[in-house]
Write a protein that binds this DNA or RNA. Structure first.
Lengths: 330, 330
DNA sequence: CTGTTAGCGCTTTCAC
DNA sequence: GTGAAAGCGCTAACAG
């Protein structure tokens, strides 16, 4: 595919195509637009032919400047670190690209001054922002993006903001119910970073479900979702092993399993073990941990619907149910 | 932080700041530039003050159009699916952002017509492209990007292209040597997609290292790097269990371990098991698999150096050695 | 050092 | 349906 721009070293512009096709630049713009715009069929064909011959490709910067829009979707996350991230972001990237858009992945980490590195960046002008990170609430995020197309997926939404909410309560209730049914009387809860609203709600759901079912929560141990923090938490738990250990992430449950296993305590014989996330990619035989999960393709579909027509997204947000998934540890 | 643009509903432009500060637009541009550009200290201060008061933020689209450059780095990958991806891309994102740039993640998948969805996109205009995917060779990639700043990390480099090469041969030689030292005489090799140049080289390295060390390669089984493909491969291997099983990814080794384990065959007693990648995030106790790895921070540092000064990158490319890492399975 | 001018490449009025 | 012209917001080049 050898292409020779008319001017050496420079890429052909719309003006070059116009000259080659013998029409005005505006006609080229219309002919090449995906929308149906008024152009005679004959000229349109001439333009298309000329564009192909010259190897013309639109400059998205110039178009963006003129239209104040850009086919970029910002995906804002805390970290890319968990197995469940793989399950989610790989299909998400695919979905975004299937729309002809591209994803710019913003890893917030523990940055405090997020706006410093957002304000002057392209991110500021994206078509839409998908906020998984809990770094900011809906109002702050709206202020941070030029676009109003902000989809909150971090639980920090308000009346104005589009959002998708994972109904974790339902799955957690099922889980506790299941544990109770297997005779669980006492339990330990291993949690993630409490600074997250989602995590906070998750913890509360465990507490109230336990209370309602009559499961005594002997201890709560703070982790950070990671495998390592699970192994550490288990050290504390081992002292007084409860009937069950609930973890707010699968990775932590894996850590708990290995750590307690080293002390000869094995699930489900010596205790019941429950994780959270129900990762697919990480559903290894050695860690077949009962968990709470949801239909990721439903989430992706919801996001896709939002990206396609943000205006038509249900104002009340979208709700995605979770379900308890029994595996071998509980 | 309430900001009121001079014109209702519109964001302040450089012209607004110039007016407020009583200087010319060009002065504002210079004053706000991160580079040291000729501006009197006094005016610079006036500009900075006015900009702050107006809540001015640069429009990167306009700057990009004028300068033909943009602070965006394209990261081109096949999939985001493996544990080793987490180990690599999380710190990589962090590194890119530490440079004030942002990463646009292109997931090629099995797309054939990659250029269709690249040509008209912003990707075309990025500051640099980091090519992990093996979708194209150096020449094609150069043709695909406006920028000449393409760093090949997929093994498909040529004399002209900047590249970082992971010297896998070294680690593989060490691994085979180690296996041989433990009495391994026969082995099976479980491979990934052979379409990848890196994988092809990896397979060859195993073959020649085995030949050199006197290890008979009884069988080669094609997988796709995934855990599932490892479990499948093990079904074939189980028929005639060799002394060792070499896998070109840790995930496949995990699958092999579980699958053979179900048949009562356990490493390292019944056979030796070796993976490849030496993932950290996925170094779970249940899968403490001997593997080949490299210093990921060295790779990140190399990429960072390239992004900072592509012109000063060693023309011969950068070489990163791998090492065998003995764990409990071999 | 400063300010004016001329674009970057595209889309969008708005007359014709 | 068509095309001239006016920007989008910014920076580079050039005189002053």
């Amino acid at each position: 595919m050898t292409e020779k721009p008319p001017r050496e070293g420079k890429r052909p512009t719309i003006a070059d195509v116009a000259r080659a096709a013998g029409v005005a630049p505006a006609i080229v713009s219309r002919a090449l637009s995906p929308d149906r715009r008024p152009v005679s069929l004959e000229k349109k064909e001439r333009v298309l032919k000329a564009a192909a011959e010259l190897g013309y490709h639109q400059n998205p910067l110039a178009r963006g400047l003129a239209t104040k829009s850009i086919d970029l979707v910002a995906v804002i996350i805390n970290y890319l670190s968990d197995l469940s991230d793989l399950d989610l972001f790989d299909p998400l990237l695919d979905a975004i690209q299937s729309l002809g858009k591209q994803a710019i992945l913003i890893r917030v980490g523990k940055t405090k001054r997020i706006d410093d590195f957002l304000r002057n960046s392209l991110t500021y002008h994206v078509h839409a922002a998908l906020v998984f990170s809990d770094f900011a609430d809906a109002g702050e995020v709206r202020d941070l993006f030029h676009s109003d197309n902000v989809l909150m997926l971090n639980g920090r939404f308000d009346a104005e903001s589009a959002h998708i909410h994972i109904d974790e309560e339902r799955g957690i209730n099922e889980l506790i119910h299941h544990a109770r049914g297997r005779g669980v009387d006492s339990a330990a809860l291993v949690t993630g970073r409490a600074s997250s609203l989602v995590e906070e709600a998750r913890i509360k759901a465990y507490r109230s479900a336990c209370a309602a079912a009559g499961v005594r929560l002997l201890i709560e141990i703070g982790g950070d979702y990671s495998y390592e923090s699970g192994t550490k938490a288990a050290l504390t738990i081992a002292g007084q092993l409860p009937d069950a250990v609930f973890c707010t992430s699968d990775s932590m449950a894996m850590g708990v399993k290995d750590s307690l296993g080293r002390g000869g305590r094995h699930a489900p014989n010596d205790y019941l073990l429950y994780g959270f996330d129900a990762v697919d990619k990480g559903n290894f035989a050695a860690y077949d941990i009962s968990s709470v999960g949801f239909d990721r393709s439903a989430l992706i579909a919801g996001i896709l619907a939002y990206l396609k027509a943000p205006g038509e997204f249900p104002p009340a947000g979208l709700e995605i149910p979770t379900r308890f998934m029994a595996r071998s540890t509980g």
